[in-house]
């Protein structure tokens, strides 16, 4: 394992992303249009509870959209080439890091869109920020593994969302509860156990991804 190689891989991912800007643009456009639909249907008098739920639904599907690309773009030949160059752990770490950064961007955009078009009812912004970050780490790492599995089936986008939906439910539920606490501005002591739970899930998912990826990678 070598950090230089991880950085090189990360650089390659970003280069590819910015060369063909359509994929990133399509995700951001998806976020914008969904939030616009929410605005049209709720007319900005949205309940705080519903705000959190809608935000996470938008985020979750945008995340699936974004992460599903991480292995579909790799052809068989290129995977073989990567196989000769890199260790699987390096490869999966770079993918996870890239997805975390990508999802952070998507999350930022969706929160901005919500704040701009709908409303921003959050009272405890720091807790909200921590929730988004920990939630995104869990989503990104589990979706990376799922997208690798989905790409192996040679199938399409639908299997990707099917695979990731049930495994992401605990993460989403914890995030929803924390977001509600942040919106209501509850005391920190209420939220500590959920934050710890979410961090533990993060560690578990990343550990599992690192452990399991080498079996997926091998043909």
């Amino acid at each position: 394992m070598n950090s230089d190689r991880i950085i090189a891989l990360l650089k390659k991912e970003f280069l590819l992303e910015f060369r063909q800007k359509t994929s990133l643009a399509s995700i951001l456009l998806y976020v914008l249009s969904t939030v616009f639909i929410f605005f049209l249907s709720f007319k900005s008098n949205i309940k705080p509870d519903a705000w959190g739920i809608l935000l996470w639904i938008v985020l979750f599907f945008a995340a699936i959209n974004a992460a599903s690309k991480s292995f579909f773009t790799e052809g068989k030949a290129r995977s073989l080439y990567n196989y000769t160059l890199y260790h699987p752990t390096e490869f999966v770490i770079s993918k996870i890091l890239y997805n975390i950064l990508l999802l952070a961007l998507v999350a930022l955009c969706s929160v901005l869109c919500f704040a701009w078009l709908v409303s921003y009812p959050v009272q405890n912004s720091l807790l909200f920020f921590i929730t988004i970050i920990t939630g995104i780490i869990a989503l990104a790492s589990s979706l990376t593994l799922m997208s690798c599995i989905a790409s192996k089936t040679g199938n399409n986008y639908s299997i990707m969302s099917l695979l990731s939906m049930p495994v992401c439910i605990p993460v989403l539920l914890l995030c929803l509860r924390l977001t509600r606490n942040a919106i209501d501005g509850l005391d920190w002591s209420v939220s500590y156990k959920y934050i710890t739970g979410l961090c533990l899930i993060d560690v578990l998912i990343i550990g599992l991804s690192l452990f399991l990826f080498k079996y997926l990678w091998r043909e």
């Binding site: 599995i149 049930p166 605990p170 578990l204 998912i205 599992l208 091998r218």
Partner: peptide, 16 residues
């Protein structure tokens, strides 16, 4: 291979 990986991952998440 693929379903074994999914099974292990899913079992851990279900257990959580």
């Amino acid at each position: 291979r693929i379903s074994a990986v999914y099974n292990i991952f899913a079992f851990c998440m279900t257990f959580v």
